[in-house]
Computed example of a mutant assay.
Amino acid sequence: MLIHAKKILDFIMLSAQAPTLTEITEGVDISKPTVLKILTTLEFLNFVYRDEVNKTYYIGTAMIGYSEKALSGLDITKIAKPYLTKIRDITGETVHLGIEEHNEIVFLEKIEGNRSVALKSRVGGDLPMYCSSMGKATLATKTKDEIEKYADSVDFLPRAENTITNKARLLKEINDARKCGYAIDDRENENEVMCIGAAIEKDKHVYGAFSVSVPAYRMTPDQQQKIIDLVLDAKAKISKQV
């Protein structure tokens, strides 16, 4: 039952608009009576909220406390945020902080830029490692066997115009990231968005990763080098404090 409840909460959270009971039932492929029973319990616990007029469901206020507690317990957020905010202030671009979880990168923090375009990312959301700078930077910290295991198990689904769709290219970019200390997402996850990211590592332990997202038209060679320098500097300073 808990697995069903999570599927329902995930569907509501990821829906572009608040879904109805029928839409949830179709989306999670669970019988309508079961979905209704779970939603009724979740509503009683304030995990979901039901709009009586439109008959639609929203994530409830009880979830806020859980998310805040989870994030407050992650020291990497507290340590990294001042450095990432500084990058945002210098560049005007959006900066993300994430951690690896189940072969995905989960966003812990999103520091919005004042020059940024609308991005799909959100705190608590995730994205594949093979097509993100944070993911490739994280993979670059792993052993050869771990990388091979990941590359052999992942489905290289195209997400944008330049998504990595084969193992050979991924292995090359991971190798490049290991050599230079950062990774690049060149319009691989979102069209016309580039990211430069690095892993936060100390004593062979990876605490997370961060990236700077820039519209491709603003990523001139000079701007790219400036961001690389900022990323490497922040990586070194954060790693000293973890």
Rank of each mutant, 00 (worst) to 15 (best):
A199F: 07
Q17R: 14
G92D: 02
C195F: 03
H205R: 15
G197T: 05
R169D: 14
Y130F: 14
Q17E: 14
I200D: 00
A80M: 10
E43Y: 05
T143L: 12
H4T: 13
I227F: 01
I24Q: 02
D186R: 01
K142G: 05
S31F: 09
N175F: 08
D75F: 09
F156I: 06
I8A: 01
A62I: 01
I59P: 04
K167L: 04
T25Y: 00
A177V: 09
E109I: 00
K6Y: 09
T85V: 13
E173Q: 13
T56W: 00
C195P: 01
K86I: 10
H205E: 12
L42D: 02
E26P: 00
I64Q: 15
L119K: 02
I105P: 01
L230Q: 11
F107C: 11
T143F: 12
D89N: 13
D233V: 14
V154H: 04
L14W: 06
I64W: 09
E109S: 12
E52W: 08
R159D: 00
K226Q: 07
E161Q: 11
H96N: 15
S15Y: 06
I59M: 10
L170G: 00
E201F: 01
I105K: 04
V206L: 06
L74H: 10
A236H: 12
E146H: 07
T56V: 12
K7L: 12
K235W: 02
I59F: 07
G60R: 07
Y49N: 15
R88C: 07
R159P: 01
G197D: 05
L14R: 15
K235P: 06
G124I: 06
I38D: 00
R187Q: 10
Y58R: 08
F47D: 05
A160P: 08
R159Q: 12
A199K: 11
A216E: 04
L74Q: 10
V53M: 13
E190C: 03
D89R: 11
M129R: 05
T20I: 02
F11Y: 15
E93W: 03
Y83V: 03
G181L: 09
E173H: 08
F107A: 12
R115W: 02
L97W: 03
L14P: 03
D29C: 09
S121M: 06
K144S: 10
N191A: 13
D186A: 01
D29V: 09
P215R: 06
V206K: 08
I76Y: 05
I87W: 05
Q224P: 00
Q223L: 08
L9Y: 04
G125W: 07
E161H: 03
G65S: 14
V95F: 00
D186C: 01
S211H: 00
K7E: 15
P221R: 02
K110Q: 13
K204Y: 11
A236G: 07
E68Q: 15
L74P: 06
A137H: 10
T143C: 12
I164L: 07
K110N: 04
K110F: 02
A118K: 15
D89Y: 08
L108K: 06
P19I: 06
A62C: 09
V242W: 00
G208C: 13
V117Q: 02
G92P: 01
S133T: 07
D222K: 08
